[in-house]
């Protein structure tokens, strides 16, 4: 065999092996990403909504929505943003939710973090992430928030979560994380 042919053959084989290694890593990342993106939405829930007892509507109050996120996948996820729309149901208004939603909106609680400062959830771990929303005292939103029935609050919360990955530069969005407080929330 010609020496030059041998040299080309060896170089090409090395390139092929390197490409195989890169293809393997790429395929594993793609597989893990697909797995994570399909599993995370089923593992996010709003575990609790904490609303203080309001005795004086002129004072600011903070509502706390606790998101519990489990990561059953094999990739570490970085929760960079959560947005929660908080509504307070008014039982004296018998219209369906969709018709009265604009009138019972209390506000939006959210946070946006850089990847370096975000909530890191490793494979197999769970984390409860609080999202805070402060309602200004004396505002119309405070009166909407201070709507109770039998001494309980009946909030609706709709959340959206953005997360990214350790080595994969993609941002995933999970919409429609909901809390429907039909059983009511005791003020603390």
């Amino acid at each position: 065999m010609n020496k030059l042919v041998r040299l080309i053959g060896i170089s090409f084989t090395i390139i092929s092996f390197l490409s195989f290694g890169l293809l393997y890593v790429t395929s594993v990342n793609y597989l893990n990403y697909t797995e994570t993106a399909s599993e995370i939405p089923q593992n996010i829930m709003i575990s609790e909504v904490r609303i203080p007892l309001i005795t004086d509507e002129s004072q600011d109050r903070t509502v706390e929505v606790l998101f519990t996120v489990s990561n059953p996948s094999s990739l570490t996820i970085y929760v960079t943003s959560i947005e929660a729309y908080i509504y307070m149901d008014n039982y004296s208004d018998i219209r369906p939710f969709l018709e009265k939603m604009n009138e019972i909106l209390v506000g939006v609680g959210q946070f946006n973090l850089q990847k370096a400062d975000s909530h890191i959830i490793r494979p197999g771990e769970s984390m409860t992430i609080p999202v805070l929303m402060t309602v200004s005292g004396g505002s119309v939103f405070m009166s909407i928030l201070n709507t109770t029935y039998d001494g309980k609050y009946y909030p609706y919360v709709f959340g959206t979560m953005w997360y990214t990955f350790e080595y994969i530069d993609l941002i995933e969005v999970v919409r429609g994380v909901s809390f429907l407080g039909a059983r009511g929330v005791e003020p603390y």
């Binding site: 090409f12 092929s16 195989f20 293809l23 790429t26 395929s27 990342n29 793609y30």
Partner: peptide, 21 residues
């Protein structure tokens, strides 16, 4: 086969660069 592996890597990673190291 050696050629196909190289082509596959470049082809796939061009469409999905975020998964490539």
């Amino acid at each position: 086969l050696a050629s196909a592996v190289i082509i596959t890597y470049f082809f796939f990673s061009t469409f999905f660069p975020e998964f490539s190291p």
